[in-house]
Structure formats: C-alpha cells, structure tokens
Design a protein around this nucleic acid. Structure first.
Length: 313
DNA sequence: TCTGGGGTCCTAGGACCC
DNA sequence: TCTGGGGTCCTAGGACCC
C-alpha cells in the first residue's frame, strides 16, 4: 500500500520572524516588499495569521496591505509590522525542517523552501503513518518552535490537497476509501495547477466544485482545456501515480528588479541590466555551471505588458 | 487597486531538414 | 510556379507555484 505525506510549514517566513523577535509576539507580521508608507511596489510574500485577520495575504500588493493595516490601526488595533525578510535565515530553518522530516521518512522530496513530500509506505498502515506524523509535528514544535500542517493520502496529489485543508497546525488523513468524499465538495481551485485563469474559465461554464467537473467526460474536458483537460480528468478522481523524485538540477538562473519609478532612460536601464547580468553570472559560477545555452532578456512596461527576447549563445 | 522575485512546464508557430 | 509530410529545434508568451 502506498502512503504519502505532504508537510507544509505555516506562514513560514512570518512565523520565523515572530519566533526570533520576542517583541513581535502576537502582532501582525507581513514579510514582503517595502511598503514605503503606502507608495511601495511589490507584493506580500507571507503574512502571519494575525495579519491575515486584517485581510492581508500572500501575493496581495504591498500598498493594499499597508492600507489594510492603517485601517486596522485606526480602529485601535496594532499596526502590522512590515519586514523585507532574510532569505539566508529562512534557508537555514528550511534545512533544519527538511532534516527532521528525513529522520522519520528518509525517502522524501523537497518541493519548495517550506514544503516536502515523503514516503510513509514503510509504516504499513494509515494509523501508523498518522502516529509518525504526529511525532514529526511535535518535534518541529518542540525543537524549532514552529508549526506545520500535514496531509496523509495514497498519493502526492491528494496529500498536497490534504495538507492545505486544515491550516495552521493541521493533520488531515485521507485513506483510499475516503478519497471521493474528500475531493468531491472541494472547489476546483484546490487542485494544484488550477489557478485564477482556469478557475474563472471553468466557473463561466458552471463548474465550481470537483463534483461539478466529475459529470464531464474526458473528451468534454479535453475539448474545454486541451491536453490539460485530460490531466484534470485524472486529478479530480484523485488519480496520481507520480513518484517521489530527487530535486533536479536547475534549468535556469535569473534575476529581475522593479524600479521605484517607471523609466525608459537608457542611462538607468543599461547599468541596471549589466548589474543583473553580473549577479547571474556569479551565481552560475557559484553553482558550478561552466556552460550555458540561452540568454533571455525580459522587460516589463507600466501597463504590465511583458516582452522577452532570447538568443542562443 | 495593482500586479515582486525566482522558478517550472506547456503550447503555438516558425525555421530548417530530408 | 507551386509545393507534401514528418520530425526536430528554437523562441515567445502564458499559466502556475511558492
């Protein structure tokens, strides 16, 4: 029997800041772009749960987060603490989390800085797998003073959906017999790979939940979404046979930056482009690459139109 | 009320070859 | 002057994820 776990740290960056700065205890914390008093550019990377109570969440424009915080402050609530974050510190904590997972489930696949899949099949049963994950969560709590949410399921797809189902500090178990009941009522957006565009597209056709989409034949879904429709047909049935795999070597290295004020001045653009180039080149060397194939230049205009130009070396 | 930064994967269409 | 079909490689753009 295949049993897969997925662990997702809760409000990872913001939780680390709260943990490491006692004076932030219990306050709303927003890690992301500099709000510059409401004039900043960029978005929220992570908001802790106190900040989420203000309506602040990941990917929200930082100016809107700033305004939400100001509105709360005018109601006598504490203003949010805005931090730019420290990638190095987060990486260190990430490594500690991954090491703990590996101790309990050696066969694992890190999915991002704060997420991993791991194979619980060796435990032999869902109750055993559940006990192991309770222990893992307790160790993360005691040793790292952070919380995680975990999903346990027959495959990666369902485990990922399950870990997201009860946050923070959740543990959601979906045994094979429960898969259909678990998935059916969920919004289609819960499926990894269904983003805002696909969600909108499906909603316009009256499809909101997984149950709605189950009524469609594979051909009908393919007609709507092309190849992705065939994949979705399997996903909404909880079918996923993808194996755990080691992290592949990087396929690209990039850097980008946004100006505080829009500009078309070559005297500004060219030095900035050269600086980004030299950083990327440094990283290329640091990571042990000796050759590269394609260089891509990306430019984004005020209306968010984005152009790329690529050339083989 | 605007929309970061660092990535992956997919698709359409053109160039090119036989 | 008009021109196939299969295959591969490449670029541009877009959706998505954290």
């Amino acid at each position: 029997m295949r049993i897969i776990g997925h662990l997702d740290m809760d409000a990872f960056f913001a939780s680390i800041e709260e943990r490491d700065n006692p004076r932030f205890q219990g306050l709303p914390i927003v890690v992301g772009a500099d709000p510059r008093g409401g004039l900043g550019r960029g978005v929220v990377s992570t908001a802790n749960y106190a900040a989420r109570a203000y309506g602040i969440r990941s990917a929200l424009p930082i100016t809107r987060a700033w305004r939400l915080s100001e509105a709360a402050r005018q109601q006598g609530k504490p203003a949010a603490i805005f931090l730019s974050g420290s990638w190095r510190r987060y990486s260190e904590v990430s490594a500690a989390v991954m090491a703990l997972i590996k101790e309990h489930a050696p066969q694992m696949q890190q999915r991002s800085v704060d997420e991993a899949y791991f194979d619980l099949s060796p435990t032999g049963s869902f109750p055993n797998a559940t006990a192991l994950c309770r222990l893992l969560k307790a160790r993360i709590q005691q040793e790292l003073h952070l919380t995680a949410s975990v999903g346990i399921a027959p495959n990666k797809l369902i485990a990922k959906i399950a870990s997201d189902h009860d946050k923070p500090d959740g543990l959601t178990v979906v045994a094979p017999a429960d898969v259909a009941d678990f998935l059916g009522p969920l919004p289609l957006r819960a499926i990894p790979g269904v983003g805002p565009v696909t969600e909108q597209f499906l909603q316009k056709r009256g499809l909101r939940t997984i149950n709605d989409a189950l009524a469609l034949s594979q051909e009908a879904l393919e007609e709507l979404l092309g190849k992705w429709g065939a994949a979705l047909y399997s996903k909404i049935r909880g079918i996923d046979t993808s194996p755990l795999r080691e992290v592949a070597t990087a396929k690209s290295i990039s850097e980008q930056t946004t100006f505080f004020a829009d500009t078309l001045a070559a005297s500004v653009l060219i030095p900035q482009a050269l600086e980004l180039c030299s950083h990327v080149h440094e990283r290329l060397h640091e990571e042990g690459f000796t050759v590269f194939r394609t260089v891509t230049l990306m430019v984004r205009f005020a209306d968010f139109t984005t152009l790329t130009y690529a050339e083989k070396s």
